[in-house]
């Protein structure tokens, strides 16, 4: 069946590149992840539940998920303000501030970790004035929260930025000319069109903060049940050769991560439906 005349011409190499892609993907990503799930099947359901609901694990999961949620909320609000100021206003240093929003992406997490710890330590530049107000940051759950806020900064800003730039100015003008005041225009016209991007950024920041390790462990204090995050507990269980425990915690975290990806994909589709392509 060679060279059917009506067929659209396509480029060569599909079979080869697709084969290599799938092979490489399987070796580096899929097989190792499958190994994790396989390992967890060595546990009975009761054992699995036992591990995951043990006091220390449950507390670590609560700390990781709870603080990540709060940090992502801060990222949502502050990210919204930052992206608005960066896109809509002109002020000195705007381009530099725009560029450094990506620092948490680029700065190695261990560097961020020791920098934040030193900054917020009781004798640190910010820690000292805060200590006088009676607020301790480094080596407390508040420190974990601070590190998670840091690591999540770019997500909301970078997901909302292109949408806000492309937002049609006419809809705002229309709202204003129909008698809406500025606040009504922002809250009823602009905010709803940014909502999918805002929520996507929130979800990405949340997912990142839940799994974050390097920037958190220095500032956390790492007290079991108080300031011990789930990824650290995985590392501790591994060092104790309690592989089953480490695996069970990892499976719970992975399942939540998959849920977040799924939600983000759905949101992106929703956004595409709401905003017709122009």
């Amino acid at each position: 069946m060679k060279g059917g005349s009506g067929r659209r011409r396509t480029l060569p190499g599909f079979g080869l590149t697709m084969g290599l892609t799938l092979t490489w993907l399987s070796i580096i990503i899929l097989l190792p992840l499958a190994g994790l799930f396989l390992k967890s099947f060595e546990l009975s359901l009761a054992q699995f539940v036992d591990i995951v609901t043990s006091r220390r694990t449950l507390n670590a999961l609560k700390i990781s998920f709870g603080l990540a949620f709060l940090a992502a909320l801060v990222n949502l609000v502050m990210g919204g303000i930052i992206v608005w100021a960066l896109v809509r206003y002109r002020f000195p240093g705007r381009r530099i501030f725009d560029a450094i929003v990506d620092v948490p992406f680029a700065l190695p997490t261990a560097v961020a970790g020791i920098a934040l710890t030193t900054l917020f330590a009781q004798n640190g530049w910010l820690g000292a004035p805060l200590a006088e107000l009676g607020i301790k940051v480094s080596f407390t759950p508040l420190g974990i929260f601070v590190a998670m806020v840091f690591i999540g900064i770019p997500f909301v800003v970078r997901t909302v930025q292109p949408v806000l730039i492309d937002l049609d100015p006419e809809i705002e003008e229309a709202a204003a000319s129909l008698g809406a005041n500025r606040w009504q225009t922002v809250s009823r016209v602009i905010l709803p069109s940014l909502l999918p991007a805002l929520l996507t950024g929130f979800a990405l920041a949340f997912a990142r903060a839940v799994g974050e390790y390097g920037s958190v462990i220095f500032i956390a204090g790492n007290l079991p049940n108080v300031s011990e995050i789930a990824p650290l507990l995985i590392v501790i269980r591994l060092s104790e050769f309690r592989y089953a425990d480490a695996t069970a915690i990892a499976v719970v975290m992975l399942l939540v991560a998959f849920l977040v990806i799924f939600a983000v994909n759905r949101m992106q589709r929703w956004a595409q439906l709401r905003v017709p392509a122009h």
Binding site: V210, G211, F241, Y243, T247
Partner: peptide
């Protein structure tokens, strides 16, 4: 989505999967 997967996996878990494959008990 599969190619993007490592972005959503905790770095610690990214290490753990290789310990489970290649470690003494792996």
């Amino acid at each position: 989505s599969l190619v993007d997967l490592p972005f959503s996996v905790s770095p610690v878990i990214s290490g753990l999967v290789f310990v489970l494959l290649f470690g003494a008990q792996g």
